[in-house]
């Protein structure tokens, strides 16, 4: 998979399809870091592991570059979805972005509770099937029980919060400047742990229809709050009720933003002959 990715990246650079390839590099001190590969020779140091979300960095690079600067990003499924969400939000120009999609391993998917561990545009690697987060033991253990038990579990978790804003800063889709979480009207300032209902739930709800379940918030959290679990219920609802999933297609807007109601025109049952007539009509 690595070799194939390198080849694709080299081809892109040589054919000047993009000004640079953005990926991970093992540097001379054997430390892995994000790197802009502008020279095909540098690609020898390209690595694909560990999982490192590049979407937000890619957005920053593109925003601070001249207009015709094209960037190819080596991305996993979640990264690609995040990039698509950023395109939807007008943060990235669609034509300035190329993606080199790589698939995640089964183990990685299990760690991330990822139900879609591959990008839509897959270039290297084998697609593995996703994990249903609600079948996962960790999630089930956390989300079962009645309201009271669940509230207690969440309270214990969220009381650890040190309000570092890591969840917000690491989120690839949190782009607002200023942010409502810094506004005294919504979130009390100077209080640690952060107010649960406002700080955490406002953050969670703002991402309700944009969360790509990358888990960056959770990984960034220094006190290990399972922040991704907050999103799971809403993601499930969106999928089941409206057939919508964030980050699959830059053209599909969130159903929560439109007034369209997915209701049948009429609940009347119609006899069969009408259909047979209609078929004749169409022919």
């Amino acid at each position: 998979m690595l070799e194939k990715t390198k080849n694709i990246a080299r081809q892109i650079l040589e054919e000047k399809k993009a000004s640079a390839v953005f990926g991970l590099m093992r540097n001379e001190w054997n430390i892995i870091q994000p790197h802009l590969f502008e020279d095909p020779a540098g690609l020898a140091n390209l690595v694909l592991e560990p999982k490192w979300l590049l979407a937000k960095l890619a957005m920053r690079i593109l925003r601070s570059s001249p207009e015709n600067y094209k960037l190819a990003v080596i991305c996993r499924g979640c990264d690609e979805r995040a990039l698509i969400e950023l395109i939807k939000r007008n943060q990235i120009e669609k034509e300035n972005l190329l993606t080199i999609g790589i698939a995640c391993s089964q183990e990685q998917a299990a760690i991330c509770l990822c139900d879609r561990p591959y990008p839509e545009k897959l270039d290297a690697g084998e697609k593995v099937s996703g994990v249903d987060p609600f079948q996962d033991e960790r999630v089930r253990k956390f989300l079962i029980g009645n309201d009271k038990e669940r509230m207690k579990r969440w309270a214990d978790m969220l009381k650890r919060c040190i309000k570092c804003y890591g969840c917000r800063n690491s989120c690839p889709i949190c782009i607002c400047e200023p942010c409502k979480l810094e506004d005294d009207v919504w979130v009390q300032r100077g209080v640690v742990p952060a107010e649960t209902i406002t700080f955490h739930l406002i953050r969670a709800f703002h991402l309700s229809d944009t969360c790509v379940a990358c888990g960056a918030c959770q990984e960034a959290c220094p006190v290990n709050i399972p922040l991704l679990y907050l999103q799971l219920g809403m993601r499930k609802t969106l999928r089941e009720k409206y057939g919508y999933e964030a980050g699959l297609d830059p053209e599909t807007k969130s159903p929560v933003l439109s007034s369209a109601f997915e209701k049948p025109d009429t609940d009347r049952e119609f006899p069969d002959w009408i259909n047979s007539l209609r078929e004749e009509d169409e022919s």
């Binding site: 939807k88 939000r89 007008n90 943060q91 782009i175 607002c176 200023p178 969130s254 933003l257 439109s258």
Partner: peptide
């Protein structure tokens, strides 16, 4: 402070 996300346009 507008990020240009386009939510308002859609809604």
């Amino acid at each position: 402070s507008c990020t240009g996300c386009g939510n308002c346009v859609a809604a």
